[in-house]
């Protein structure tokens, strides 16, 4: 049973990763693959849309921690949008809001890349 899915789409100079389902130690390698592909393609501006993500464990959180610096070193970033409350609470518990930008919706996150 596929309990996690990541799909990528381009919006101007930004790539949007849409996450769906359950992100844990079993499914985190899928997300790593998606980030590796973005880096290979030199796409460093990333919005992660969490609209359909129901669950995240530290294995999933770790993926963002492992990749954000590479994006920022290349003048890009990983910005988060559309997070459900239960998912945001986990990011919040670990102190992510100090180091990452969270937006209510994708458009808002995309706009921030235009301003930069």
């Amino acid at each position: 049973m596929a309990d996690f899915n990541v799909s990528a789409r381009g919006v101007g100079s930004v790539n949007v990763l849409e996450l769906k389902g359950y992100l844990d130690a079993h499914t985190a390698p899928e997300l790593e693959k998606a980030f590796n592909k973005l880096i290979d393609d030199k796409s460093f501006n990333v919005v992660v849309n969490f609209k359909d993500l129901n669950y995240i464990s530290s294995a999933g959180l770790g993926v963002f921690m492992a990749y954000v610096e590479t994006m920022r070193e290349n003048k890009g970033d990983i910005k988060f949008s559309n997070m459900k409350e239960n998912v945001f609470n986990i990011f919040d518990l670990l102190g992510f809001p100090v180091l990452y930008e969270f937006y209510k919706d994708e458009t808002e996150a995309l706009e921030k890349f235009k301003v930069q």
Binding site: S58, A59, M65, L94
Partner: peptide
Amino acid sequence: TPNLLEYQKKKKAGGLGIFLMRKL
């Protein structure tokens, strides 16, 4: 206890689980 900024600079993916367990 993990230092998020330090982990991020080192591109380290692990080390958060136990801290989470203690918080939860």
